[in-house]
Design a protein around this nucleic acid. Structure first.
Lengths: 145, 145
DNA sequence: CCCTTTCTTGACTATGAGAGTCAAGAATTA
DNA sequence: TAATTCTTGACTCTCATAGTCAAGAAAGGG
């Protein structure tokens, strides 16, 4: 598992909001049901996502969540980076390998870890919510046809 | 942490064996001390590594471990893949995301996960133990000079 | 043969991050 | 005022990972 459950839920929720953009407010409970996410847990995640500026909410009767930018303007990398910052305010660059590089020989690997991290984010930063939406609809078409 | 402590220990032990290749047998306890790895835990890992064919051991008085192929012939990817197989005999391709893709919408991401996994292994498969040795000696030179 | 060293095996425990829950409260609208 | 929905943060639980332990088997030295 290279990506936490929490971050996957965040991405799925964002994808759901992207799909329903323009259709008014989307309730947390609707997203939870549609995307198979534990409802309470989703509330926590959505609250956090508000801090990213990609999502806004309205509470009370007929309240809900909505996506602010266009899906093509949001990359997976941005979402994941934001979520990581939420979890680890003091994010250490070497967390891909270990948080304390206390012994010297570990450094033989540091170059490797940075190249891996760069490769990963090259993919994440090159994928937008719109791309994911396209995937999803392509799959639905295949199933139907 | 994208790579487990266990797998890092495995890589560090392999690097140590690569460096001492040609110098006779290397004791588990020596590796543990030199590379700052819990000794008992390292024994478990070295035993597993024997199954990879990259490492052989001799027990008894004056026993120890040694690397079989040349360091340039072993990639980080091969070591990590072997270790993963050790831990998860039934490795599922989608483990990068989740082990059960039970709900349909998850598939919007499957393409993303495979591209990420491919990007990671492109780096791992392109890095040999020899490369790591070169890193290590380059660093020592810098420090000394 | 006996002793020491070192690997062998597998069961065992501990720890921490991640996952998920709960409950009281504050907006909002009907 | 009542119903609905988001808000907040503390709380518990679970499980993979990490690491330990102990008894034993192979190998060589004396």
């Amino acid at each position: 598992m290279l990506i936490t459950q929490r971050n996957q839920y965040a991405l799925r929720a964002m994808l759901d909001l992207a799909i329903h953009k323009g259709g008014g407010l989307r309730k947390s409970s609707e997203i939870a049901r549609a995307r198979n996410i534990p409802p309470r847990f989703l509330e926590v995640i959505l609250s956090q996502l508000k801090g990213s500026g990609f999502v806004k909410s309205k509470r009370g009767y007929q309240g809900g969540y909505t996506l602010i930018p266009e899906p093509a303007q949001i990359t997976v990398g941005e979402v994941l980076r934001f979520m990581d910052r939420e979890e680890r305010p003091l994010h250490c660059i070497a967390c891909i390998s270990k948080c304390k590089c206390s012994y010297d020989d570990g450094c033989a690997f540091s170059n490797l870890w940075s190249r891996v991290e760069a490769a990963i984010y090259r993919v994440y930063d090159g994928t937008t919510l719109q791309d994911l939406m396209d995937n999803e609809s392509a799959m639905t078409v295949e199933e139907t046809g």
